[in-house]
């Protein structure tokens, strides 16, 4: 029998540039960032000035580092509510090891890194072993760390904050890595901005170009199917929790070395900002879809808005309202694009 015109396999079909753009999860965030950027650039004097830009980049950077970690975990289908408090815990561990036990700052940083990875692994292990939702498990960790932060700090210092790390050996060299400033033209950037770019770049590469990245999308999309095709689900998810904890260690180290002091009650409530940034950046709450670059841009929107409102000299009493409206708008836009994108795929 004769085959006249062989139909092209739909997976090999040519897709237009516009449609290819539309399927990117971060598209909504990019558009949102452009809108926010243009708005504040036009309506305020200082937003675009070197010092002004350095301010909102600085604000976005530490949030962005966490948002990328949290986004990877969310793509893998899990939450980490302890991430915000972890940024304070890691800073406290570093500060206590350095100032109270007299360790070199580098050793103290190593100690807090081990602590962070252990907490991350514990979160992941409990979630995977018990099958409980990560929302509950990490909520427990969130509360436990709060108590630990306050209790241990009071025990060691008799006060509620740890300071004095700037006179410990190794502060200057460690500070160079985490808390220095970079001069680009007339702009004085905090080094945390470079960390943010680096973390977003590495995470994007892992997600899109490595086998582990494939596994992350797989376990987030459907655990059962992932297991059936041989993805090591448990290992993947535990590593993801450890990744978020690692990001918290980076941010905690930046904070303690830059501000040289840490308060026991810091970081509470930040976990929701990380999730907001990740969701604005195109992550689905149900997992399996999202992007690291998107989360980094979500954090950029957050930083630009937070500082832009001050530049615009609006009454900051309204900030949260603005944030809420923006979150809803971003999610609605993302949703519309995704529907369109699904039609394109089909």
């Amino acid at each position: 029998m004769a085959v006249a015109t062989p139909t092209v396999d739909e997976r090999l079909a040519r897709v237009g540039v516009l449609d290819r753009l539309l399927v990117r999860p971060e598209l909504g965030a990019v558009l949102g960032a452009l809108v926010v950027f243009t708005f504040f650039s036009v309506f305020t004097d200082q937003f675009l000035s070197p010092a002004g830009a350095a301010t909102w980049l600085d604000d976005a950077s530490t949030l962005g580092i966490m948002a990328v970690g949290v986004a990877m975990l969310m793509i893998g289908g899990e939450f980490d509510l302890s991430a915000g408090v972890m940024t304070a815990s890691t800073a406290l561990v570093t500060a206590i090891l350095a100032t109270q036990l007299g360790l070199n700052v580098w050793l103290a940083l190593g100690g807090s890194l081990l602590f962070a990875l252990a907490v991350g692994a514990f979160n992941g292990f409990v979630v995977m072993r018990t099958g409980l939702p990560s929302f509950i498990v990490t909520l427990g960790m969130f509360l436990a760390l709060q108590g630990l932060n306050l209790g241990v700090t009071r025990l060691f210092t008799g006060s509620v904050q740890v300071s004095g790390i700037s006179s410990v050996d190794g502060y200057e060299s460690a500070g160079f890595l985490f808390a220095s400033t970079v001069q680009i033209g007339s702009m004085t950037l905090q080094v945390s901005v470079l960390w943010w770019l680096l973390v977003a770049g590495v995470a994007t590469w892992v997600l899109l170009r490595t086998r582990f990245g494939n596994w992350i999308f797989a376990v987030g999309g459907s655990v059962t199917s992932a297991r059936q095709v041989g993805v090591p689900v448990m290992r993947t998810k535990i590593l993801l929790f450890m990744t978020t904890a690692f990001a918290a260690w980076v941010v905690g180290s930046i904070n303690i070395l830059r501000f040289t002091t840490v308060q026991a009650n810091q970081g509470i409530g930040l976990e929701l900002q990380f999730i907001v940034a990740a969701v604005v950046g195109g992550c689905l709450l149900t997992g399996g879809f999202g992007s690291a670059i998107g989360a980094a841009i979500g954090a950029l929107i957050f930083g630009m808005t937070r500082q832009g409102i001050v530049f615009a000299r609006w009454d900051t009493d309204w900030f949260m309202l603005f944030l809420g409206v923006m979150l809803l708008a971003a999610v609605l836009v993302n949703n519309a694009f995704r529907r369109k994108a699904e039609r394109v795929r089909r």
Partner: peptide
């Protein structure tokens, strides 16, 4: 990084 300055003690 080569052009950056660390925090002072």
């Amino acid at each position: 990084l080569a052009a950056c300055s660390g925090p002072g003690a």
